[in-house]
Each structure stands twice: as C-alpha cells, then as structure tokens.
C-alpha cells in the first residue's frame, strides 16, 4: 500500500477535516458521511486519518483487537495475553464484497483439510475499535447495507450460518464517501452517520494551486513530504489525545441542552438522534478547542455537520440542506 498523504497537508476542506477529528475524539458521535464531487480529496482525507490517529493497545494476535485478555472471544483460541500497541485500524470495505467476507464465515481451509469447524473472522472483526471506510457508499449493495446497519446499531456481529453460532464485539466508526450524482443514499443508512459533510472543490485560485503543488511534491517524494509534515501531524494528534481526556469532564449545562433541542425542533429533524449527536459533537469541539464549557458558538459550529442530513427531504426547496440549517440557526440563535 502506498504511503498516505498527511492529514494536516490537506488544503482547505475544513468542515471535512473537523468532522473527522470530532469522531476521532468521541467515537460515539457515530461516523462521518462525506458527499461531494470527484477530485475533492474525500478518499485522501479518510486514508490520511489512519496515519493521524493515536495508537491503541490490543491483545497481541486478537482478531477483534480486544483491549484486555478478558475480552478475547473463545473462538479465537488465543493463548497469549501480551498487550501491544498498534495503529487504529482503518478497514476498507470494498464494493462488491461478499457477505461472508464482512461478517466472517466458516474457515473453509480448516473445514476441508482438517475437518474442523472453525470461524474465520471478517472485516467487521478487523474494524472493531477502529474505522470502517466505505468508498462509494451509495453504490453498496442492499443486503450488505442492511447488515452494516444492524451491526452499527447493536455494536455486535452475530453470525448464524454454516452451522456456526458466533458473536463478537464490532464497534466501529463508519466513514462513508460518495458522489450524490451517482445515486442517493438510503434514509436509514443516512441517519446512522453522525455527521455529514458536503465537499466542493476550492474556488480560490491560491488554494487550488496549493493543492496541486502539494499533491505533486507528495507524488514525487512521499517520504520527504511526510517528514516535512510530521510536526503538524503530531500537533493535531496531541490535541486529539488531550481532547479525549477533556470530554470526560465537560458537562453540558441546561442552556446548551435547550439550545440543541430548540434547533432540532425548529428543523423538524426526525427522532432524538439529532440532539444527541449535536451535543456530543459540540462537546468534542469544545474539548478540542480547550474550552472550559460548551458554548453556543460550539453548538452552532457543528450544527450543519450534525443536522443537515437529518432534515425531512423537501425536493421542492432548492436550497441545499446545509443552507437550511444555517437559516434556522440564524432564527433560533438570533
């Protein structure tokens, strides 16, 4: 695999970068959906995230990246109790992947050669405690989408097939990207993403030239380029680690909760997931900024990210959903 482009070297696209950092601080926000035209750096940002995230501690050899030996499932038949550090897993879910590859299935090799019934873990196991990235998520096949929805909600992967009966933890942050011109996303899956971002190409000439220049110098010398950006990368990483600690102590005042609720009511977003995500995202942002408390500014900064994909679709309103959120923001917080 080629070296990833450094996250901090991505020009502009602040909303997308911010959304990804927020989920890195608080995984319970529940994933990011990045929608936009081709060539806007969607996939680049996701792959860059892998290099940015701090390492996690796992039981050596555990197929589901368990944090402690007690969590290692029986079927893994793991003897070792050694802990080791590894980069946060970012697992690519390719389109056209088969169901057994996602959930895991009977280990055919062992079944055929040794006549044993054993479980071969799939991508969901690998993605536990990390990220699951789906490029072109709007082209994903229905039955895989159903399966992901189910697992994302329960945090557990249940395999009942081929005479196997296995369950294991599968908590991951879903990151999806796609181009809305190639088809829309199913509402149920849309709702499952905590934050959504629409990206466009930068319109500013200086930014455009800078993008091209950085990409070119990265392509010509990936190692050197990564080295030049190493400082910036570790700066962001440190801030994320500090913010992860800080969110534990940041309490939301009644006022902030009311603000969130008022926004969601005004926008008519379905369900309560909107409020929850809004609150968590605002808290993560406050922590990242090193603020002592969550303020109105934090809530309104993350509102477009957290709410724009939860609006009732009104096909006759030509304004983009992010614009609608901002309109309501201006009303509610006036």
């Amino acid at each position: 695999m080629a070296k990833a482009f450094p996250f901090s070297a991505i020009v502009g696209q602040d909303a997308m970068k911010q959304a990804m950092i927020l989920t890195a601080i608080d995984p319970t926000i529940g994933g990011v959906l990045v929608f936009g035209d081709r060539g806007t750096g969607k996939s680049t940002a996701v792959r860059a995230l892998a290099g940015l995230l701090p390492q996690i501690e796992v039981v050596d050899g555990c197929p589901i990246n368990s944090a402690s030996p007690g969590d290692v499932p029986d079927w893994a038949e793991l003897g070792s109790k050694k802990l080791r550090k590894r980069p946060t897993p970012v697992v690519d879910l390719p389109l056209g992947v088969s169901q057994d590859r996602v959930t895991g299935a009977l280990d055919i090799e062992r079944a055929l050669s040794r006549g044993e019934k054993a479980f071969e873990p799939g991508l969901l196991a690998q993605a536990n405690r990390g990220y699951l990235y789906i490029d072109e998520v709007n082209l994903l096949e229905d039955h895989i989408v159903d399966l992901l929805l189910d697992v994302a909600q329960s945090g557990e992967n249940v395999v009942e097939r081929d005479g196997l009966s296995i369950r294991h933890a599968a908590r991951f942050v879903l990151v999806g990207s796609g181009n809305p011109e190639e088809g829309d996303l199913r509402p149920q899956l849309l709702d499952r993403f905590g934050l959504s971002v629409e990206v466009t190409s930068p319109t500013n000439m200086a930014d455009r030239v800078e993008v091209i220049r950085r990409r070119d110098s990265f392509d010509r010398d990936p190692e050197g380029f990564a080295k030049r950006w190493a400082r910036a990368e570790s700066g962001v990483r440190k801030k994320i680690v500090a913010a992860r600690e800080a969110i534990k102590t940041l309490d939301a005042g009644t006022e902030v909760l009311e603000d969130c609720a008022r926004l969601c009511i005004a926008l008519g977003s379905d369900g309560l997931r909107g409020e929850l995500t809004l609150l968590r995202a605002a808290r993560a942002l406050a922590a990242y900024d090193g603020a002592k408390a969550i303020s109105k500014a934090h809530v309104s900064a993350v509102a477009p990210l957290a709410l724009s994909h939860r609006l009732r679709r009104d096909p006759l309103d030509d304004a983009g959903s992010a614009t609608r959120v901002e309109r309501v923001l201006a009303d509610v917080f006036a």
Partner: peptide
C-alpha cells in the same frame, strides 16, 4: 495549469494535478 483548467471550465482538481 490550474488557471488554464479553471478557464476551460474544469471544476475538479484531479485534472490539473
């Protein structure tokens, strides 16, 4: 190349890259 791409109405950034 970036300027030219814009003036020919190519919105994405992959082309000039």
């Amino acid at each position: 190349l970036t300027v030219s791409a814009l003036r020919f109405g190519i919105p994405g950034l992959r082309a000039p890259t």
